[in-house]
């Protein structure tokens, strides 16, 4: 009877430590401050908004998509993504890019765009009559 619990506990400890190990290995933190993003070599999920005033660039030859993102404090960075413009990108109010900042660019391996209708209202509220 006792052995059963010791064995079970042993298995659980192994399982949990394996999980914690892999969790720390695959952990990606959200970061909404781009000055922090630029200072780390780790993969992060940078959240901010797409700078519509600046150009975006779709390079067919190298198959890259480049655009600028800005955080709440006004820090800007250039994002390069190996691929094409994601669905919904043009209307995106908020963008989450996963990747790392190397050599002056944020190299994104994933782009998530959020374009909820609620944001539309907020955007309009700032405008004049």
């Amino acid at each position: 009877m006792k052995n059963k619990y010791i064995f079970g506990g042993f298995i659980i400890v192994i399982f949990l430590s394996l999980m914690v190990y892999l969790f720390t290995q695959s952990n990606i933190q959200y970061q909404d401050d781009f000055s922090q993003v630029m200072n780390t070599t780790k993969t992060v999920k940078a959240t901010g908004s797409w700078v519509k005033e600046k150009s975006y660039d779709l390079n067919r030859k190298n198959k890259t998509f480049t655009f600028f993102m800005v955080d709440d404090n006004g820090n800007e960075m250039k994002v390069i993504y190996n691929g094409t413009i994601p669905n919904n990108f043009e209307s995106a109010a908020s963008v989450v890019v996963t990747g790392k900042y190397v050599n002056g660019y944020f190299h994104a391996k994933d782009i998530l765009t959020k374009c909820p209708s609620k944001y539309e209202d907020e955007q309009v509220k700032t405008s004049t009559m």
């Binding site: 969790f23 933190q29 959200y30």
Partner: peptide, 17 residues
């Protein structure tokens, strides 16, 4: 649940486990 705490995991966490 990790995003609730501002964390997230790469999908290889699920795959490898």
């Amino acid at each position: 649940s990790a995003p609730i705490f501002g964390q997230s995991v790469d999908t290889f966490f699920y795959d490898e486990m």
